[in-house]
Design a protein around this nucleic acid. Structure first.
Length: 401
RNA sequence: GGUGAGUUACUCAAGCGGCCAACGAGGGCAGACUGUAAAUCUGCUGACUAUGUCUUCGAAGGUUCGAAUCCUUCACUCACCA
């Protein structure tokens, strides 16, 4: 197989839709013929500081492009974040202040290079040109589009019909995102499927501004969160952050449902679709235990952000705590005063949010001292060392002085 | 600008003078069962060393023995009209 063919196969893998595949083909071809590079744009909204697996779907793909001659234009939407992308939201999004945005943008970059090749990445902030656009530039931009077409966008249409408010600035958002593509002269833009409208806007505006080229578009599927329903996002707290501890990444992957596991394999794993299909068959025929399959996925993902060693350790730690019901190796340590009331102690060390909650949990048999269930909520702790546990996953070592 | 409807806990949503820390659903947490999975079943879901006390129903005042419930003002949201 030729380089070009391999490249295209890698690029197509797991993609949910491509617009103008011809363009991509010719760019790749050109690279392998005379080494000329091309640009791939991907925009990130610095609204949350931590990257999670959902973001990596995109980043992984960008990395593949880098392997095949692309320079990545990593666009930090610092300006547009002050507006708030309405995509997928049923109501107007809250606006962030500039300081938070800048701080988020910085941590973003640190994390992005866990995956991307820094030498083939150009980080750009859209405030650079959008600040300069000015009122006249903005007006010019808005004349290129009309409200009827804007309302074609699904979420706008829904909100419009149901009488929910749409602010004018939200109409401007897609225009600005598209304008970014004009300024950057991007050859390709990557985004989630939910970004289709905005991505197409870039293509449209490049033509409208007579750039004599139009970006190809590659859309990645949206990764569901741990609950398997909603999109993975920080605000829903259903995410796996790439900076989380190995054992947390491992444990979180293990906690997803079997159905979702296959979805994660498809979108996140490096395994070929054939291999995945084979595993699915084997599980169905009872040749393979689904838990084993999930362990492999957890290992693969943990390894990706750390290394094999940490991943293996995460696994053995996990098995120790949950399979054989032993205590974790390292627990948070605390010191408390002699004679402290158990509920108070639990609150003090952060295992419980309130004494009321602590009482409830004790009543339900969720609290253990040195692995033994307690039922009396009136216990006071005497001098000594104890291991306190709430539920299955919250542990702490306590020394009573 | 005018008229009308609304604002209840994490979300949706009942309640319309005492029986209200507030029905119900979702979510969350915990227990059982398991593969810490899913599904299912059960319990809990304002705070407080607690059979009681305190703070909550957009905000501030008022009426009342007693207010989420009635009145006044203000803020916000939505609909229709302009």
């Amino acid at each position: 197989m030729s380089n070009i063919k391999i490249a295209l196969d890698e690029i197509r893998r797991g993609v949910s839709e491509i617009i103008d595949i011809k363009r991509i083909e010719s760019l790749i071809e050109k690279f392998y013929r005379d080494g000329s590079t091309y640009s791939v744009k991907a925009g990130f909204d610095p609204t949350g500081a931590d990257l999670h697996l959902g973001h990596t779907v995109l980043l992984q793909k960008l990395r593949i492009f880098q392997n095949h001659g692309a320079t990545i234009q990593l666009l930090i939407g610092d300006f547009t974040a002050t507006i708030g992308d309405p995509t997928g939201k049923s109501e107007t999004r809250k606006v962030l202040d500039r300081d938070t945005i800048l701080k988020n943008a910085k941590t973003y970059q640190e994390q992005v290079f866990k995956i991307l090749d820094r030498s083939k990445t150009e980080v750009v902030f859209n405030s650079t040109w959008l600040d300069k656009l000015g009122a006249s530039g903005l007006v010019e931009l808005t004349t290129l589009f009309n409200v009827a077409r804007m309302l074609e966008r699904d979420d706008f249409e829904k909100r419009y019909k149901s009488g929910k408010s749409i602010s004018i600035s939200e109409f401007i958002y897609p225009l600005l995102q598209g304008y970014d593509s004009v300024v950057l002269k991007s050859d390709i833009e990557i985004g989630g499927t939910d970004q289709k409208f905005n991505l197409l806007m870039g293509r449209y505006l490049q033509r409208a501004y007579q750039l004599n080229k139009q970006q190809a578009i590659l859309m990645m599927p949206i990764l569901e969160g741990l609950d398997g329903v909603a999109k993975m996002s920080k605000s829903l707290n259903n995410y796996i952050g790439i900076t989380e501890e190995p054992k947390d990444i491992y444990a979180k992957v293990m906690s997803i449902s079997d159905n979702l596991m296959w979805r994660y394999y498809e979108i996140l794993s490096d395994k070929s679709l054939k291999e995945i299909e084979k595993m699915l068959q084997d599980v169905e025929n009872g040749l393979l235990h689904p838990k084993k399959v999930k362990e492999n996925l957890a290992l693969e993902l943990t390894t990706r952000f750390y290394n094999e060693e940490s991943a293996t350790m995460a696994k053995s730690e996990f098995d120790k705590v949950f399979k054989s019901n032993k205590l974790p190796t390292d627990m948070v340590k605390f010191e408390v005063e002699d004679g402290i009331w158990i509920c108070k102690a639990l609150v003090e060390i952060g295992l419980e949010p309130s004494t009321s909650q602590a009482r409830r949990d004790i009543k339900q048999g969720a609290v253990r001292i040195d692995q033994k269930k307690i039922s009396d909520e009136k216990i006071n702790l005497k001098k000594g060392r104890y291991i306190l546990q709430v539920g299955k996953r919250k542990f702490a070592k306590v020394e009573v002085k």
